[in-house]
Design a protein around this nucleic acid. Structure first.
Lengths: 260, 260
DNA sequence: CAAGCCGCTAACGTATACATAAACGGTAAG
DNA sequence: CTTACCGTTTATGTATACGTTAGCGGCTTG
């Protein structure tokens, strides 16, 4: 199995913890430990798509009783990471290109709204500085050609933006989609060209936010997500060319990295 | 307790059942019965905002054991209808104006995306006819001044649109927000002016969809939701004038009700 | 040989038991 | 009179028990 390499946990940050990490699951309720543990295993590929386990087996795997494991599984099913088919087991979902499109459609719509709200609300100098610093680091990684690290920082940038939008429900729902979006992205990270255009667009988004211009921010982020989502889907389809549109395994080919 | 009058269940329809109804909870699993029963009681005001019950009390109320009731409560909490505070009970949430704004921001963003997707996908003549028929009925009710019935049809129209968008995740997430959006709307239905403008905008949306023009559909629906949401918030603030921005009880003024 | 019926197994849904730890009240000390 | 500590109560979180029913395979019959 390639991709056995651990997903590099992004540096700990304020704001919502999205990245797969097991840190600090110390004295949480068992249900939350089950949730985080399972989520971690799914997002890192330790639990491969298609894997099917019974409630009892999951409970044994996590050394817990069925009750908290069941609650965790229900939650992960609601997030689209598991599929529960009573009497047939609990299966790790695999994402077809259609699924990826659906996920990105929702995720982007929500994120665009979040950015608009951030611009409307306005951000402090400190917050702007933090985001700008992230963009600086991303551009350095682009220059260095380190797309994996850039990708982590990109996650950070987008999550940090969302964390400023001041709409808890929006944040929660985006969080629910985060795992799926992360998996979808992992399917193509290795195929991505150098994110020169993304770096430019990020600066435009930041400019609109700093200017307190919600319409401009919305427009800039819409352009960004439309282009990025389209690219992601193109890469996915290209990579899967020949494969049927059915459930696609997560591709793990180490390919080229190019510059536009 | 005013508003004791039952919420008029909209006519049964294909597509997602959103309206509060108890129909057909016959042989469902206990957890689903608990979910639907509780949701129904909340949306109809039988369980008033602020009501706090312990898991045991809820279980007794529904004549079930704690396990399925607990799972139902967790789900309703995720939907924002209940708040679970361990050792302090399970409380029916009340919506502050800020909550309503947050809810509408998310709900509208998602619905606009759904409409865009419907326009992109294109709709059949039969589907178009069904939607047009709904609009006809709405306009007749507008002419008759029956805002309550118009409101039910409006729910139907919006839900029917979403049902055509072909993105199950988007539909699911919209469904999760439906209850909150419904409650928010109920807070002001009685204060609404005649929806003349909405009727016009609905026709514009339909035209863009029939034309298969996603950008136009998005623009039309954005205008519609922006205006309608703004109106709703204005009505809410006006109605609550004097009240503090804290958790606001759902207004239950026994005002005029037009005859059906 | 195919197809349908029947009985068995066990996974799940639900109920219940149990342990823990948080809230509350009372008491005592400052 | 206020505050802090302690003991009791009990709601919750988790584990476990139990009944039901969905699958599944074998058997029988056409």
């Amino acid at each position: 199995m390639a991709a056995a390499r651990e997903v590099r946990p992004a540096s700990p940050r304020r704001g919502v913890r999205h990245h797969p990490t097991l840190a600090g699951l110390a004295e949480l309720p068992a249900r939350d430990r089950a949730y985080q543990d399972l989520r971690y295993r799914i997002l890192t590929g330790r639990l491969a798509p298609g894997t099917t386990l019974l409630e009892t087996e999951l409970a044994a795997l996590l050394s817990l009783s069925r009750t908290p494991v069941r609650e965790a599984a229900i939650r992960l099913a609601e997030e689209g990471l598991l599929e529960i088919r009573p009497r047939h087991g609990i299966t790790v979902r695999s994402l077809s290109p259609g699924d990826v499109r659906d996920i990105l459609d929702v995720f982007s719509a929500l994120e665009i709204k979040a950015v608009e709200l951030v611009a409307r609300r306005g951000i402090s100098a400190a917050e702007a500085a933090r985001l700008d610093a992230l963009l600086d680091r991303m551009e350095r990684n682009t220059a260095a050609g380190d797309i994996a690290r850039w990708s982590d920082l990109d996650d950070d940038f987008h999550s940090s933006l969302v964390a400023l939008c001041n709409n808890p429900r929006l944040q929660r729902t985006l969080g629910e989609y985060w795992g799926q979006q992360y998996l979808a992205r992992q399917m193509v990270v290795r195929l991505r060209p150098l994110p020169l255009q993304s770096d430019i667009e990020h600066r435009e988004i930041m400019a609109a936010i700093k200017a307190g211009d919600p319409a401009a921010a919305r427009a800039a982020h819409t352009r960004h997500r439309d282009r990025a989502d389209h690219l992601q889907l193109s890469l996915l389809h290209a990579h899967l060319s020949g494969a049927q549109p059915g459930p696609a395994p997560i591709p793990r080919t180490p390919e080229q990295e190019e510059s536009p």
